[in-house]
Design a protein around this nucleic acid. Structure first.
Lengths: 341, 341
DNA sequence: CTGAAAGCGCTTACAG
DNA sequence: CTGAAAGCGCTTACAG
């Protein structure tokens, strides 16, 4: 299958007239190799088209140079952002990224460690909701399996993590709606197994409380972070006589669904109803109108989580907690009640 | 770092009172192991929480059980579909999936083999435009590196591949527009380095020729398969007095951009202009109106390509070419000229 | 049906 | 500054 056989460290050593240990030293950038020898080795390696065998390096070093990225997420944009953050950090390193989407985090809890071990991963980046799943965190901690958590909202003491302040972000967004003049604000919650759902609910309530607005529980609907669930939840909110003048969907996919529901009910956004989201994912730029949202630093969180993990694996120092700033992104989907922006 | 040390095959052999070769036989499902011994081994393995070390297996077998997925694609939906197709096929196997997005296929040509080798991959699934890049294909073929091509449009004799008929699909879509009554149809082409761009252009011309419609080259605009490029190309087409009554964008991201451009010019879709796309990606379901498009079997192509690759690696028989059907998906973005559907 | 030996391609200790 | 030996955890031949 594989044409000519690949050259090994022994081939290079023979061609260069040195021991294989010297070749090893050169390829690992160890100090104390005379320049003359080093050049000979490099020349021989080049002639033989030598590349170290990572698998052999892995066996002796008891590691695979494989990092896993665990996610359970229906949003392609979010997933791709996570992957790019992790991959960009790994660029130029020996480590490779193995993707581990799971159907349901709850279903793999208890099997996570076995899964990671059988895949021979050196460490793993956990994203929501896995990064907040107590059983998984305990399982990994107890066995000493290296992991970093992205965007956790609870158990702050378990393991290193990167995050953004979801509570503050949701609070800011709600304040923005209140400042525009909204009082009856609907909320579409996300998947209840993601703890961001709670965090964003807290931020929402906090802003209402600050403004002295009594919360209206009848304007809170459950969604699942998917587009379809956004459509359905929004229909329930909009298809009533005392409908809210604004809707805060806990992510952009659901906000997009809400906009679709409004269109279908012949309501103008933002004149008849303002709709805002959370995440700043691609969909927020492609709906009509474009969605006012919160930019979540997904790429940055994934990137710095990967950075921490690599540091852990190499026994280098690293920050244990890193918070990345969010940002309110004002587009065209929200305006003062009755105004078209 | 890693808590208790993992049990090895020797530990299990000792605990079970057999040789390590017997343990190996049990875990590889080799025949000819007496049931009594097998049970003893399994019990010992369970007690020790033993899992075979893939890295060691890899070293002796001269393989890594790692499969790569190469893509250069700006569309998250497309990428995630590809990944899921590949992952679903790999589920339950020893193989893991390593993602290899590249900034530009042209830039890695010549370095592809080195990249795959240094990552110690057993084989690779190549997607557009890498699957059509002559230099990359030659490089891999010559060295005997196992690969399968997804959606190639040229060099049909190089290596196994899975595909769909882009020419026929684009032709069908164009016929659909013609049947609706359109004669002046604009075309937004995709990235010129992707050969699907050509294939879809051929299908477009073919349908026009069949219908006896003279092609209007001034209605052909260049895009890059991105949302932004769709906006810009559509603006050029729509911002003229003799604007087309329909626009065929070569993918959904650009079609979505075209719809945005129409909105911004205060044109109603489909009454003032029909807009259709290609791919059936998420964006086609979330714009207003939803986009009439062609469903491309991305998941299926990736899945069966991965299936072929695994068969190659295990020296099992496999189909060399597999064509998956496409499907016209009629939504609300196209109608007879001047009609709103 | 079962096992003892050799070796996959490297790095880790240890010597000099 | 350089190298010879041992070993990482398995499987591939080969014996019996």
């Amino acid at each position: 299958m594989s044409g000519k056989k690949r050259a090994t460290i022994v081939d290079v050593a023979e061609a260069a007239g040195v021991s294989m240990k010297t070749v090893s030293r050169v390829f690992n950038n160890e100090p104390h190799v005379r320049k003359a020898l080093k050049d000979k080795v490099l020349r021989a390696a080049k002639a033989l088209n030598y590349q170290p065998n990572v698998v052999a390096q892995g066996l002796v070093g008891r590691r695979s140079y494989l990092i896993g990225l665990v996610y359970e997420n229906p949003s392609p944009n979010y997933v791709v952002e996570l992957q790019h953050g992790a991959l960009d950090r790994l660029h130029g390193e020996r480590y490779r990224l193995v993707v581990l989407p799971v159907e349901s985090v709850a279903n793999v809890a208890g099997k996570m460690l076995g899964l990671l071990r059988s895949a021979a991963l050196d460490g793993v980046v956990l994203t929501p909701p896995a990064s907040d799943h107590r059983q998984i965190l305990d399982e990994l901690s107890e066995s000493g399996f290296p992991f970093v958590r992205v965007a956790p909202t609870r158990y702050p003491d378990i393991g290193p993590s990167t995050m953004t302040d979801d509570v503050a972000a949701a609070c800011d967004m709600t304040r923005y709606l209140i400042e525009l003049g909204h009082r009856d604000i609907g909320l579409i919650k996300g998947d209840p197994t993601h703890s961001a759902t709670e965090a964003r609910l807290f931020g929402f309530s906090k802003a209402l409380a600050e403004a002295g607005i009594a919360p209206r529980l009848d304007l809170i609907e459950q969604g699942m972070f998917t587009y379809e669930s956004g459509i359905e939840a929004a229909r329930r909110l909009l298809d009533r006589s005392d409908r809210p003048t604004a809707i805060f969907a806990q992510n952009d996919d659901m906000a997009g669904g809400a906009i679709m529901a409004a269109h279908e009910l012949d309501l103008d956004v933002p004149r008849d109803v303002s709709i805002v989201g959370f995440d700043d994912s691609q969909i927020a730029k492609v709906t009509w109108p474009r969605i006012t949202t919160v930019h979540q630093p997904v790429y940055e969180m994934a990137r710095s989580a990967t950075d921490m993990l690599v540091a852990m694996l190499e026994n280098k120092p690293y920050e244990n907690k890193l918070e990345h700033p969010y940002e309110l992104v004002v587009r065209q989907s929200a305006a003062a009640p009755g105004s078209s922006g």
